[in-house]
Amino acid sequence: MMLKDPSCPASLSGALAERLSKSGLRVSVRIQRSPVRDARGEIIGIVERSQALAPGSSCSVAEAHLRLLVEQIPLFFWTTDLQLRVTSHWGRTASLAKSFPRYPVGQTIYQYLRCRDDGEPPAKQHFLALHGVSSRVEYSSRNRRYDLSIGPYLHPQGKIIGCIGMALDITESRKTEDEIRFRASHDGLTGLANYREFFESLEQEVRRVERTRQPFALLLLDLDDLKAINDRLGHLTGNRALNRLARVMKEQCRTTDLAARYGGDEFAILLLDADGERAQNVAQRISACLRSQNDSPPLSVSTGYSVYLNDGLSATELLEAADKRLYQSKKSRHSCAPNPDNQHTESART
């Protein structure tokens, strides 16, 4: 417990100390200590007198207990007066000590929530609350994200006397949500967008282009001979081959383009604000990049593109058109080089 500290000096006057109370709350006290002597003058004990320092820390046991319970919730509350000064503060201050002041009573909400502009959240919501409007807003401060609810603080007779605010720390859950969203929309092996994400983006682009009339192109890529690589060199090598292509695709894309792994060995790129020429350019650059790599096995791709309006008006039409060109390029490749499977894998083995 707190006072059983035999190393403490027997005489002490006006020293400051922090003690733990039963409710777990720290109590700041000023201490006077004097020795207790027996009839012969030998010290047999110590008497200590202490008084609480901060007015806030001398709260009643019931309030301290309630505060302790409230602190178990990842949540904090505050009330303000009509001038938006904090009049009370409840909740998990310990974990937020770095981003929020520890003793905020008397501060303005600008200091308390580290905001500036009256027209921006969360100050704006406080002004709304003073007019009787409750609102909710997400707010970021110092790398943490909070879900704020701010409403009017009503006197029992119904008059607004300030605001009541509540903040829930959603940093972690937001991170998890983002990760789940990423995993649901991306391919686990290559990190590119997956089929669904790609198809949704394509449909979205089709809808958008109906208004903007800015053409876009679609490029399908097929990693040649993946099956042969898998069969002869193992699936790990096959996976590495897929990753190599994915990396090259990312390098050759603009940030506004969307690269996706469309299926097993099929990839696709949505090229915004692009025509057939740019699509062919990108396809050639990717092929050239793969050719220049020294890694084994050497990789090559077959490509097919389609352009909005010329080749179709819907996502399905565009995909079909691109697929047709892809098939043709595959067929011509096969007729040019009769047995590329063996060439590739043989060169990889030597």
């Binding site: 006072l3 059983k4 500290d5 035999p6 006290v29 207790v36 010290i43 047999i44 004990g45 110590i46 008497v47 200590e48 007198r49 202490s50 008084q51």
Partner: peptide
């Protein structure tokens, strides 16, 4: 004032 007395063993 909180007044607390303890003996030399620290027992209150």
């Amino acid at each position: 004032e909180a007044v607390v007395g303890f003996d030399l063993d620290g027992a209150i």
